[in-house]
Design a protein around this nucleic acid. Structure first.
Lengths: 201, 201, 201, 201
DNA sequence: TATGAATGAGCTTTCATTCAT
DNA sequence: AATGAATGAAAGCTCATTCAT
């Protein structure tokens, strides 16, 4: 019984948090980060303002949740690729495509995540970790590739920074200009470049 | 006399603006962009709040000034390299080194410039152009390199995004971790990577 | 339910706005228009400053409300007299008495309405129309009186200015000196004067 | 010598005050009462801001002076008429014409004097006295007229209020609408009205 | 003496957070 | 349990007045 009630409560909480998540995304899309007031979120979510504080300790926590939830599918997809049984270069390609796909989809939200959310430490601790995980993932793939002689010997830590930064910039450019580039083309272009570099053969 | 007075006034204004500039940097370092209040700037600068408005029409103008002043030496150095009479790959190397040097120096400030200042139209029109200029510069060098067969034929626009993004990410990593990597090493690493890519020879 | 809640809310809002109205009047009485700060209004009303903004979009709206609420009973009473079925001179008399009665009551507030509120666009569009309406009303009565030969032929537009100005000045004098003259006596005096003029019969 | 110096100083003071007077009028015309800042006055007068405080104790005193100076010619002209040796009705006519002439001329300034300057007691004590003097003047003429049987017996105090208020309203209307009515016509209209009233003969 | 630089005190407005219902 | 009303604290900005030069 107690357990059942707890179950139910957790369900409710979960549903509410998702509703709030969507409201936040909506408000961010419409009013930007500076226009993200608790009032607006509550109104958009169709709940009382005070209720937001039943599900999140404060605005910062709410944003953290939103961030995590938004990034989650990307992380999941990437993990799947990481665990798959394909050569390192294929893994890298798959990861890049995953990034391009998701970031292109969610447009405004990811635009905010890349540009605004470093601000003032709203998410600092979490978000950096997030980014760090992405870097770690790439780094792992690189190491694997180096080990299996698919890639030449490189400083994997720094090289993963190069790759991540490059991808991020590409997406940012897309979003900033409201363009949508074909995911495959982008991926191939990056892969091609990172494979061969600038060198004339 | 009038001219002399004007001269003196300009000096004073200039000195004050620099003082305020430094105060802003200090406050940004300590409290972040959202913690950058006029009160704090005034306190840090050791002047009355109202005085700030004698030297800048409003907060936005102040930030514009700070931004311009901070970015100026980088821009200048890059322009110098661009005009110099060296092969494209040397130019690219020089530009990259310039970025690493300056961004490493000013730490927090440039960290903010890369992440925060696009926010909410604080500097919108100007700042975007700033980043775009950087991209254009790299793009030009790439084109020059392609023309002179120093580089292989690449999509210069997108490739400049790759390079800029990579550099930005490297610097960000440095600043985030409060580390300082040797400029030369960084430059060579990036150049090496972008030259040869990941491919096993 | 929803309807009931709405009803209640409207009541609360209405009560609050009236409370604020009275606070404004009080502050105006004590500190004048330039001393009418939101802080003082809030303090006088016994609410937080921010609460004022729950009931009025901004200071200007608040003043508009105060103005409307204060002027409303006068306007209403005058309209009633205008529509009544009595000779023009009786109508004029009734209107004048109405003015004297109400203006005498609200003292400081109406003093401000006549002198201050045209200032600087606080109520600009509305308030000018207000005074103009009063003039129009008098003008209409005069025209009616002229048509029915109760009054001699006069330039009704200008004459209404004369009458309105005279009444206004009388009230102003009263308020300035904190005197209270009997309404009837005042009315009769004015009517008598405007009827016969200065001429020796 | 001391006396001479004093003389010279008084001259300078006088000249400066007049210059400031004109600057104030200019600023009032251009920016309204709320736009009348000491900065603007100083700039318009071509003197340092601090200098204003050499010639006036504070803003309020400055405004008092401006008011007095603006009203002075009217007062003077009226006094002349009062002392002249003509029948009371002629005197009244002359005074009215004087008012219409001057008030029509100075447009903006007198518009402000009639509408804005009661605000917050900027000039209260002085200005009321000013107005009271005007009323006294009219009252005296009326009394004289009554004594000499030019006017019928009226309550001169209140009647002077009627007349003054009427004139004021006429001028206000003119200024508010940026119209200019012929002085003579206005005067005759008022005189005619106040002589005969509304009564059908 | 004349001044412009400096500023304290104060303005309107906003919003995350609380709390009585 | 859910909420909207209430608000303290803080923001950007202004201006009459002073004071060192």
């Amino acid at each position: 019984m107690t357990k059942l009630e707890q179950r139910r409560k957790e369900m409710v909480t979960s549903v509410m948090r998702e509703g709030i998540y969507e409201a936040v995304v909506e408000v961010l899309t419409e009013h930007g980060l500076d226009g993200l007031t608790m009032d607006r979120v509550a109104a958009q979510a169709g709940v009382g303002k005070a209720s937001l504080y039943k599900y999140f300790a404060n605005k910062q926590e709410m944003l953290r949740f939103v961030h995590a939830k938004a990034i989650e599918p990307v992380t999941a997809a990437v993990q799947t690729h990481l665990k798959s049984d394909i050569p390192a270069d294929q893994k890298l390609r798959a990861i890049l495509r995953t990034w391009f796909e998701h970031l292109g989809e969610h447009q405004v939200l990811f635009n905010l995540f890349c540009n605004d959310f470093g601000v003032e430490g709203l998410l600092k601790s979490e978000e950096l970790t997030e980014q760090e995980r992405a870097l770690q993932d790439i780094s792992n793939v690189l190491e694997e590739g180096v080990r299996s002689s698919v890639f030449r010997k490189v400083d994997t830590a720094r090289t993963s920074l190069l790759i991540f930064g490059a991808v991020r910039q590409l997406v940012e450019q897309q979003l900033a200009n409201d363009e949508t580039w074909p995911t495959d083309e982008l991926t191939e272009h990056v892969m091609d470049f990172f494979s061969r570099g600038l060198q004339v053969r």
